[in-house]
Design a protein around this nucleic acid. Sequence first.
DNA 1: CTTAACTCAAACACATCTGTTTAACTACGG
DNA 2: CCGTAGTTAAACAGATGTGTTTGAGTTAAG
Lengths: 141, 141
Amino acid sequence: MVSADSTALTERQVTVLELREQGRTQQEVADRLGTTDANVSAIERAAEQNIEKARRTLELARTIRSPIQFSVSPGTSFDDLVASVYDHGNEAGVKIAYCRPELYTHLYGALEGCTNQSELKTTIDVGITNEGEVRVYTEAL
Amino acid sequence: MVSADSTALTERQVTVLELREQGRTQQEVADRLGTTDANVSAIERAAEQNIEKARRTLELARTIRSPIQFSVSPGTSFDDLVASVYDHGNEAGVKIAYCRPELYTHLYGALEGCTNQSELKTTIDVGITNEGEVRVYTEAL
DNA sequence: CTTAACTCAAACACATCTGTTTAACTACGG
DNA sequence: CCGTAGTTAAACAGATGTGTTTGAGTTAAG
């Protein structure tokens, strides 16, 4: 088994993910580990949640560490969002690494599920690095 | 404060990181939060460990989910490591996305701290995606 | 309908993590 | 030498997460 040391996953979770990755059913994994399929399902779920949590943690860390950072409220239009990214960049003397249509696409992809007919549904946090990279950090579903 | 929901960081940790990012000293943060500098130091440390843990978790997940995957023992030379990557790729019919010198550099960078005069110091796990991407997962320090 | 594969929720003992205090420690510039 | 900035370790109560069992619930395939 690949080591789970210093990781958000437990040994059990890694074991289950590995066996499942090999194509085994939850029942087969359960038999091998001497437990039930419901238990395997639960462990698998916990593992996936931990991985998702890790993903979000890195996003959050990147946002916090961005030299430029601001929040955008629900109800803000996509156009205003894009504009405010440029505004904040200008204000701090940072050139945004995207032209307007690129930024549009970038944000649209990153905000899938947080938008409703060209409007933000939730509060989002935007970070801009010194290199002009734009990162968004969205609330949990 | 940026939301810490569904994240490996606590609200307190986010607060401390944000205030610190603004350039404040641990003592200043401590005063504002009504606690001691030692406490702030501890919280900051826990936060950084959580972020590092999240980073390692994603690495681990990527390795587990790689269709091709194998371990390499301590004592293995860098040359043998590079060769075994190509061998495993061939065996599974996957073309490695790096030419030999590229792979050399890629692995050398990824394994900083795990090598000793062209030899592996620790066990590492290697994953190869269907696209020929090579990822290494190293043990914790 | 039956079966296989999987999910969901509640409950439980157990383990780990959290923030906190206190006290001692290093490192550095004046 | 002193003060500033930061680290480290031990200890503790409270919170959160763990794997597990049990029982019921999907969902799709034969």
